[in-house]
Amino acid sequence: MKLIIIKYNAGNIQSVSFALERLGIDFHITDNPEEIMNADKVIFPGVGEASTTMQYLRDRKLDQLIVNLKQPLLGVCLGMQLMCNYSEENNTECLGIFNESVRLFHPTLDMKVPHMGWNNLTLSNSWLDPALENQYAYFVHSYYVPVNSLTSAITEYITPFSAAMHKDNFYAVQFHPEKSANAGELVLKSFLKL
């Protein structure tokens, strides 16, 4: 299997790489369109701000490349948010793979923003391993995708939101599997098994 991590200005590429190394998985990090198109599977990481990241992808025409991929692709954190239509983070038009909008969490007295820490998953018609039901994953984010028909795991913080999504060959998680201990490893394995 040829696994590619898309190389761009995402903050967590190193961490995702190390997580795959720990699993003993071979992979390659590249922004070469041909290599990405010929991969068996693709990981689209993401830590950063939506508008600058989208601009970076557009400048390198990676946006069109990503939406046209046919092989399984896993978006992580900001990667998942960028796969939606639009993000409230600096009014950003995104890739439009998922027909959803990304919203800002509004803090309450007891629920601070960012949503930071370990929270549990409730699976919903999921591509994720059933053993992940009610397991904890590590989240760090201020924006979220509301629960919708593409949601494959739900987490609750201030409001229920999409912890994982799936449409056709596109898979995504809001949390950080690369930092979610054993549960995170199971998430990566779930994707690699597809």
Binding site: Q14, S15, A19, R22, V140, E178, S180, A181, G184, E185
Partner: peptide, 11 residues
């Protein structure tokens, strides 16, 4: 830090 990140699977 790189060595820590390589071996530790939590933030």
């Amino acid at each position: 830090v790189k060595d820590i990140a390589r071996h530790i699977n939590i933030p």
